[in-house]
Each structure stands twice: as C-alpha cells, then as structure tokens.
Design a protein around this nucleic acid. Sequence first.
DNA 1: TCCACCATGTAACTGGTTACATGATTAC
DNA 2: GTAATCATGTAACCAGTTACATGGTGGA
Lengths: 197, 197
Amino acid sequence: MSNSSVLGYALLGLIQQRPSSGYDLRKIFAETAMGNYSSSPGAIYPALERLESQGLIYGVVKDSAGLRRRRLYRLTPTGTAELRKWLTRPIEQSHVKRGMAELMLRFAFMERTLGADSSVAFLQNLRAVVRAYTSGLETYFRANAEHMPLSGRLALQCGIRGFRSIYLWTSHAIRMYRKPPSLLTSGPAKTRKGGPG
Amino acid sequence: MSNSSVLGYALLGLIQQRPSSGYDLRKIFAETAMGNYSSSPGAIYPALERLESQGLIYGVVKDSAGLRRRRLYRLTPTGTAELRKWLTRPIEQSHVKRGMAELMLRFAFMERTLGADSSVAFLQNLRAVVRAYTSGLETYFRANAEHMPLSGRLALQCGIRGFRSIYLWTSHAIRMYRKPPSLLTSGPAKTRKGGPG
DNA sequence: TCCACCATGTAACTGGTTACATGATTAC
DNA sequence: GTAATCATGTAACCAGTTACATGGTGGA
C-alpha cells in the first residue's frame, strides 16, 4: 500500500483527472509542462502495473475504433484514498530541500481533489516552511561565505534566490486564490518586501 | 569510461579539490549546502569503487594516528581528464529542464579546475539557454493558460519564476566575476529589467 | 509495399535507498 | 565497561534508463 514513487503519484493524479491509457499519460509527460517526468514506456507501463497490483487503479481494455486495444485506467476507491493521503501529508523541510518538484505536483493536483481551501492552506504551510528553510540557508551563507570560493558562494546564492522566488510565488498564489485571477499574467519577480529571513 | 552518474561527478570534483576519504565526502554531503546529494554509505562507497575500477581515482590506505584505516582517494590523470570533459560539455536545453542541479555542480567546480574565464563563459552560455527555455515556457503558458485549472497555471508560473530567478542570477554572477565581489550580500531578487522572454 | 504512427510491452543494466554489520578509538 | 564517534562496508530491494520487440492501422 505504501507507494513512495513520485511517478506513481503523478500517474495517480493524472488518472484521477481523467481515465487514461499508458499512451495518454506518456503523451502528457512528453508534450506538456509536466515534461520533467519520464514518459519512457519502460517507466510508465511498469509503474501502471505496480499501481494496479496494489489495487490503486484498474484497467479496462477498450477495443474501440479498430485501433489496437488500449487499456484505460481509472482509480479505485483505495487509489483515491491513497492519493488523498499523499496530498495531505505534512510538509517537512526535507521535502523543500530535496523534493520541491513533488510538492509542486501535490499542489497541482490538490485543487481538483481537495478543493480550493485545502490549496490555500497548503500554500500557507509551504510558505512558512520555505521561509524557515531559506533563512537557514541564509544563516549558513553568512557563516561560511568568507571561507568559500566565489563559485561556491554564487552557487549557494542561486539556491537561496530560488527559494526566495518560491516564497514570493506562494504569496502570489495565495492572492490568486483569494480573488478571481486576471489570467495570462505570470507576474515578474518583484522587489520583495518582508521576504523570508 | 563514460561515467554518467551525477554523484560520481560530485565525488570527482570534491576529490579534486582535496584528497578525501569516503567518510570525508559523506560529511560534506551531510553537513554543507551540498546536502542535496546522498551521503548514505550505500551510495558513496559503491560509487567510489566504481570510480576506482574505472581508473578515475585511486585510494591509498592511511593508517595514521591509530584510527581505523581510512582510504584516501585522489584523482588519476584519467580522472582529471574526465572531470574536465564533464565540465566543458555544451549546455543543452534538456539540462536546464531536468538537470539544473548538475549544471550548478559543474559551475561550482569550474573555477577551480578551468579558471575564472571558463566560469564566465559558462555563465554566459547558461544565461542564453535559460533565457531561451524560459521564453518557451512563457509561450506555452500564454497558449495554454486559459485551458488549465488555476492550480496548474500557478504551478507552471512557479517554474517560470524559478527560471527567471536563475536568469537574473547568471547576470549577477557574471558581474561578480567582472569586479571583485563585495562579500556577504546574496542580493535580493530585484525587479528585472530586460529579463528573459 | 513500405512508412509513419498508435499502443503496449519486456529485458538487461544501473544506481540509489534502507538497514544492517563490523571494528577501532576516545571520553566518561 | 560502555557509549559515542570514526570509518568502511554489504545485501536486498526498487525504480528508472535504454533499447528492443510486437503488432495493428492508415496513408503515400
């Protein structure tokens, strides 16, 4: 039952959005902004088999339209529950440190599954954890910068800036949930007022 | 000879900076800002064995000071060459998309191994690729935003902002190489002027 | 006929994770 | 003596990569 592979959850979330075949899912990874995930058949099909063997999804072969049979997957109740469990996991600093992509994935699926209020709560939680983590990095930077080579210092700064950017984004995202969004503005990285740390 | 594991290159780079034992390297991953890499013995020691069997490093057992013998690793000429080969690889969009951490690692090791001029060239190259990639994402966003749920839009925006932040950082870093740095300022994410896209 | 595309699979390999094992030294 | 820390390893497991296999359909 305890799943653990990020790809597995990505598949779970996508299948929940709409019943899909392996091919559909591969296309999503290959053609949309979710392209940071695998898309290779050697990853997708075994992952789907695992999910099915765990009882989280079930596939029905459709022989529709004379094409080769495609196996359409849907979530089982267990699968839905597992997805929710994943989405509601508490956010830890280690996730921010090494698994930001997974947190984003959770956020992307959250609205649909748990509703907008949960998304806002998640964002607020994330903002706090990111802020704490960033300020830890800044402390580390202040303590160690003078002993580091320029390149090391700059690389660390890049990381810090990245997290500050995420911090700002969480605020932006929360605002967007509060009032209906004006579409098509991704918003520049503004001067931060009262950012993390 | 063709290595490919990022951890392997991280080890190569660190060993080049100073001869190290597995334990030393684990400590670096566990205690410094390089903590995004593994640090578990089950990752480090086998990786070191692989590097040694490929002739990229060699280990000498030091029985110094009565402690348990520690195996100090150094780069072989082949290892140095391999490191340089990795550092001078051309930057591709796919690296920016899925392997930003590896690019940062390359940058962090570059100054020491290839000199500051190479670092600046790398940054300029990176800046161009990041800009192109970001502007692709922005185009995708403009084309698809209206068909995406708010959460999807926001997640994508987060990515775009992240890359804009990296873009700004490359400019900052180039400036830092041009004139001696004023230490201890990691610099806020400023309003961008003429950013990517 | 042959190619491109739809669609699913499989097998070998690689490398990281977790967890455990071992043993030496230092400090109390 | 015993706990903490230094230091290296090992084994089972798991998931992803690459590359190949298969086979149906529609169009040139």
